[in-house]
Design a protein around this nucleic acid. Sequence first.
DNA 1: CGGACATGAGTAT
DNA 2: TACTCCTGTCCGT
Length: 299
Amino acid sequence: MPEGHTLRRLADDLTAAFAGRVVRVSSPQGRFEAEATQLDGATVVGADSAGKHLFVDLDHERFVHVHLGLIGTFDVHTDVDDVPAPVGAVRLRLVTGADADPRGTAYADLRGAILCDLVGPARRAEILGRLGPDPLRNDADPGQAWRRISRSPRAIGDLLMDQKVLAGVGNVYRAEVLFRHRIHPLRPGDTLRIGQWRAIWADLVELMAEGVRTNRIDTVRPEHLPEAMGRAPRQDDHGGEVYVYRRTSMPCHVCGSTVRTGQLVGRNIFWCPRCQPTFRSRAVQSASKHAGASGGAQT
DNA sequence: CGGACATGAGTAT
DNA sequence: TACTCCTGTCCGT
């Protein structure tokens, strides 16, 4: 679940359900017990996200800083008839509804998060300060990311997932945006052209905003959708239609080549060898051009 | 039932 | 580069 769109959606949902309301705060699992006791009865101001970080804003400038990590979930239930007993390892539970608010009773359960801390404004600012621009935020400056990418010999696939370079992109958006722009994940950042970066950024802004709306990741262009191509819709786990993410050994929706996988800095990468040809140095490229080699497919 | 694995990231070596 | 943490799901025995 958790890439930047998940956290933004969560912040919006939490704000809609809890803003301006008094909350009962508890930690059924116990790990957040002391802080929960302290916060119980506070009024929620709202919630906000930056990259993959979430902040629940409570009165007196107190923030619950949440990072879901790889496996965390934060389920928000609104307008329920009753609040069920917590099941499993619920680290943080927020409950509201003991008031005359037309929004009714609501609760939210946090489980599996890698981080759940009570912090103040200084710590919050420090966390935000470490993050690169977030395509979901209007105040983001993509030029800041470009300055780092254009000077780095590291693979673009690595740079896109570095939260100091760019905040909010995870493994799915990385794989998909590189496919959509026909760029091999191992291509060095300092070989990209600024036009390519601008296109990637603009695409992420759109794709991730769509992800917030639908609460899932869909990256396949209309002409390559199952209905348009007469193929079966994606049946597995994660819902959204994608080009290469976790489609190892399956045929590329665009060219039919076999989707490949590999490892990059400990994470899985996926690409189409024909649509995203292996990067070659400018010298080699121009040499083969002069030699009359047909560009493109390199497998 | 055990183990591998997952849309993440900090810390140690 | 490896290990660590967090939880749920799926797969093989």
